[in-house]
């Protein structure tokens, strides 16, 4: 250990300091700012919509879509499209802070990094949900789901499943920010981790589409995944959000 280095020792000026930034205020700021940025450029939104649409169309060609197919693998098709569209959003979460080093500006501020990760997570969750809700009617048009499909519950699964992808994905987005082949590495990290969540969301959606089978177990598992990785991600926010 060497000696402490200190700068400008002049005590007694604490009174003029502003109060410490509140967690929720920083969080709300970041959510609003990211939404504003997205609405201004609409880059991710458009790319995601088009990408997911293409996946749905390609699947229709590959599998000869029809009511019979949908009742067997509809849940899988839906989630593959959402998963890849989601990866587009997650890849950009921290990337957009790099050009003018605005991430560094955050790192030197007294605001908590947990608040930053939470804000980034919320923003990407909302973006992904928006895209999915826009795509759901298209899916219904292209794939003729059976009439017994329970759409209200499907949306519930959509929320829990997207939460799972967004929570772990935002964390990995920060983690892979400065790696080579960043855009490729993100799915390489996220997909193995998300396997149980993907199994759960596909199974639950499938059962809801054809109106039979166990749903509660899968929903519970998804919520468990959500809670675990939201907590773990926020707890480790300091570790993944560091400077270049």
């Amino acid at each position: 250990m060497s000696a402490p280095i200190s700068t400008a020792s002049r005590p007694g000026t604490a009174a003029e300091r502003p109060p410490a930034p509140k967690f929720w205020r920083v969080w709300a700021r970041i959510v609003l700012r990211d939404i504003k940025l997205e609405l201004r450029s609409r880059e991710a939104l458009q790319a995601m919509l088009f990408y997911a649409l293409l996946i749905i169309i390609i699947f229709s060609f590959a599998f000869e879509a029809g009511a019979e197919l949908t009742s067997r693998v509809g849940g899988a098709l839906l989630w593959v499209a959402f998963l890849f569209a989601g990866l587009v959003a997650l890849d950009r979460v921290f990337l957009r802070e790099l050009p003018e080093a605005s991430l560094l500006g955050f790192q030197i501020s007294p605001a908590s990094r947990t608040a930053l990760l939470a804000g980034k997570f919320t923003a990407s969750f909302l973006l992904m949900i928006a895209v999915e809700l826009l795509l759901l009617p298209l899916f219904a048009i292209f794939f003729n789901p059976p009439p017994e499909a329970r759409w209200g519950m499907i949306i519930l699964v959509l929320l829990a499943g997207t939460w799972a992808l967004a929570a772990s994905g935002t964390y990995f987005s920060a983690l892979s920010l400065h790696t080579r082949y960043r855009a490729l590495l993100l799915p390489l990290l996220l997909l193995p981790l998300a396997i149980p969540a993907i199994v759960a969301m596909v199974q639950a959606t499938q059962h809801l589409l054809d109106g039979q089978g166990e749903v509660a177990y899968w929903l519970r598992l998804l919520v468990g995944f959500d809670i675990l990785y939201t907590t773990l991600g926020l707890a480790l926010a300091d570790v993944v959000i560091q400077t270049e």
């Binding site: 700012r33 504003k36 940025l37 957009r96 003018e100 080093a101 605005s102 560094l104 500006g105």
Partner: peptide
């Protein structure tokens, strides 16, 4: 720093 730490689109 030599970069502005500001977001270019805002």
């Amino acid at each position: 720093a030599h970069r502005s730490l500001l977001h270019p689109d805002l």
